[in-house]
């Protein structure tokens, strides 16, 4: 490599000796950044672990208000987006910028789908008052029977205490969409005499902060992808210049990694 002249390689910045050195420095920097991300989320997982260890009943009770199906779909969406992002790196390494554009577009689409489903979930929780900390105020009383369409025959006939199916541990308590906004039957459960643990709000504090921070990372990742998309459209990437796609993909995979742990820990308790 003694005959190498950095000035003649448009992809190597002047303060690097070789292309390889530039590549490895960039990668190292990215990994150090990813470490700070792991530590950031590590603090939140520690928060989760301490409260779950001390108050398992809160987690068992409250996690039933999360929709396992929506959470599962989001998990699959993120796994697929990780695949397309890894494929984009492959395409960039081979200089196939058209494929890079396509792969990043699919990844972006997945990210939109993830956030869309997240928005549905958040909206549902906001409407039900399942908000964090001292804002936690499950609104079941004023919703029960408020909508004439959801008054069932038993209560219409004057039955003050209509028979309610006992809550099924395996099923999410979120009602099918057709039943409308009163879906969360917290009130019915109370009528059944089930013990509602104290401080259920704890779970929702953890839920909102952890999924919220993760959601912000998804947004940031989408920003990175748009930047990569524009560069790929200009045909910039190739075997000598794919570090940006590589690092963007690494970031996206960390977003996926965090969700891989968040999904079972928040949605799949009992």
């Amino acid at each position: 490599m003694s005959d190498h002249e950095p000035d003649h390689n448009p992809h190597v910045a002047h303060h690097y000796e070789t292309e390889k050195q530039q590549f490895e420095s960039g990668k190292l920097g990215m990994w150090v950044f990813l470490v700070t991300e792991i530590l950031l989320f590590g603090g939140l997982f520690c928060w989760y672990a301490i409260y779950r260890a001390n108050h398992p009943e809160v987690f068992i009770y409250a996690s039933r208000y999360l929709d396992k199906v929506l959470g599962g779909i989001n998990t699959i969406i993120l796994i697929c987006s990780s695949l397309t992002m890894a494929w984009a790196v492959r395409a960039a390494q081979m200089g196939n910028n058209k494929l890079v554009v396509r792969m990043i577009l699919v990844t972006l689409l997945c990210a939109c789908g993830f956030l869309g489903i997240k928005a549905v979930e958040y909206n549902h929780k906001l409407n039900a008052g399942l908000t964090p900390g001292r804002h936690y105020a499950p609104r079941h009383e004023e919703q029960a029977g408020a909508d004439p369409a959801v008054v069932d025959p038993a209560s219409a006939a004057g039955d003050a205490n209509p028979p309610v199916a006992p809550p099924d541990d395996d099923k999410s308590l979120i009602a099918p969409a057709a039943r409308g906004p009163e879906g969360l039957n917290l009130g019915e459960e109370k009528a059944q005499g089930e013990q509602v643990p104290d401080n259920v709000a704890l779970f929702f504090s953890i839920y909102w902060v952890m999924t919220g921070l993760h959601g912000l990372h998804v947004l940031a990742g989408m920003g990175v992808m748009i930047w990569l998309l524009l560069r790929a459209k200009r045909g910039e990437f190739g075997p000598h210049n794919f570090l940006a796609v590589d690092c963007g993909a690494l970031y996206w995979h960390v977003v996926d990694l965090v969700w891989i742990f968040l999904f079972p820990l928040l949605y799949l308790i009992d």
């Binding site: 490599m1 190498h4 003649h8 390689n9 390889k20």
Partner: peptide
């Protein structure tokens, strides 16, 4: 993509996942 002053030796760090 033509890159002056580079040869295959510089691409030793590139591994493409099948």
């Amino acid at each position: 993509m033509t890159t002056a002053g580079s040869s295959d030796a510089h691409l030793s760090h590139v591994h493409i996942v099948p």
